[in-house]
Design a protein around this nucleic acid. Sequence first.
DNA 1: TGCCATACGTA
DNA 2: CGTACGTATGGCAC
Length: 603
Amino acid sequence: MILVKDRAKLDNIIDEIIQYDRISLDTETTGLYPFHGDRLFSIAVSTGRQDYYFDFNIGGMPKSVLPKMQRLLDNVKYVYFCNAKFDMSMLHVDGLKTIPQVLDAPSMARVENSRHKSGYMSLDYLAKHYLKSGSKDLNVKKYIRDNKIYGKDHTGKLKPLYDRVPTSMIAPYACLDARLTFDIGETIIKLINEKDKRNRASKRNRASKPKGYGSLMDIIKSEARLTKVLFDMKVEGFAIDREYIAKGILHETYKRDNHEEEIKKQLGDAFKPNSPKQVKEFLASKDIIVEDTEAKTLVKIAASHNLDILEHIIGYKQANKKISTYYEGYIKLATTGDIVHCEVNQEACSTGRCSSSSPNLQNLPKEPYHDYAVRNSFITNDDARLYFLDYKSQEMIYMLDQAGELSVIDKVKSGLDFYTATAEVIYELMKVKLDRKQSKAISLGLAYGQGADLLASNLGCTREEALNFKNVYFKGLPKLKQLQDYLIEQVKTYGKIHNPFGRVTYLTAEESYKALNAYVQGSCADIMKRALYLCSEVLRGKKSKIILTVHDEIIFKIYPEDEYLVEYLRDAMISAYRCNYINLEVDIEVSKTSWARKVKLHG
DNA sequence: TGCCATACGTA
DNA sequence: CGTACGTATGGCAC
């Protein structure tokens, strides 16, 4: 390990490191939250042969020397990170740009093996998985505990202050993390090259007639260029309307308190509406036995048994969820500038999708517009407009196109909405009229292997009728059945499926019914990841920005001078993937004010 | 305090 | 056997 705390030696050290193509980098920070006062105090770098600790803490180099580190970032080809967006944030607030190709170890791990558990992959987890070693430095933790070095974060919560740990203790720890990150990155690249080689050697495991045969390395490249796009989204963030949120909380609190009062009157002060156990016990006391206490179930029971109290329980839970999961979450995480910088997680989903957290902006209630719609919380805070570009029935169209199943696609090509087209095909097959909603339930449900019972309850028909629907649907769409059979066969034989882009999803034989979903959802995730990159290129150097992706949708903030680019953004999304028989279509919605107030752009 | 099950919002 | 997520809550084990 080389400890760098002398600015006079910095240039020589940088010269030494930039002889290498690939390095890893890890920032040590105070321990607070990014965008809420967290700052780096040192940078650990590993070349795989030597580790360097650049000390910018008290006793080390002054922060004014930090810009000199830019030369290091500009002159290596690849940088491995563990949780790249975090380190990039820390470098960003101190004016450093991460120009070289960013290789994020958790994102690479997800590509290498879809079976990693969902959610955040820590360095410790990756080290144990790929290197059979760990990263936790218990000495640092003990030092913090023994010396009680804690500070308050923006919410008033106590957090350890890592910059107060002696350099002699934290430097080896930081360098170990940098070395582990390097070794994990190299190990994954090696594994991926081996897998690609084996796969090229045997031409097995190929889905039926995809347009291209991607490799795992193609996915790694796609992910690598995406990391910076997601980082830019995080930096941009989404503006919130604090006044509206305060109003929303008051509105929902009023409703919640009224329900609570009635519940207490009838069921006592100790009754907790959020407790499934207590709700079940209450219903049991009325000789009503239920499997679950979901709102859907309680609504049915309220009607059949004339139990008004259930309406209050449902109302209480609804209001409480809006307050705590949505409104209060936004307030807690917003900066003083009223911006929420949510995480768009690149690696968290087994299928390859991006998830969102802190807060999750991918599950806001989709309410018809009203004054207290949760989506009013998110706004434009200047003269930009929000644009919402979403793929029309992306998964369904991709799926039937891949299957080569043209009965529905031909109707869509002639201008019909996908689910209306499906309803027509079903009518032609079995002379049963479905509305669009029923058609959607059948298409989505059956494509992914929904059972007859659930289908019957969704359609409001008998089990026999549902079974009949199932048979007719697959008989009418034989090539879809063939694709599904093929993918299930792949899982049973090889334990995995490959999508045309090169992504591999591992499934056990017992999970083979998930194969079609993994194939379709995974492919569409890869299309979206390409689209995000292409859109970022359209907006390169512009004031307008990508704000968020919600699986088949991209949300943009577009300034008046950039409005002409919206057509180009749509074209970029369409060109992200050309289907075999039809082009993906993109709908455009726009709002001058809040997310809830978006309207269709053209008729 | 940490973990699990349940409930519920989205694509 | 729809699947894929993240968050809040209650209840139990530690």
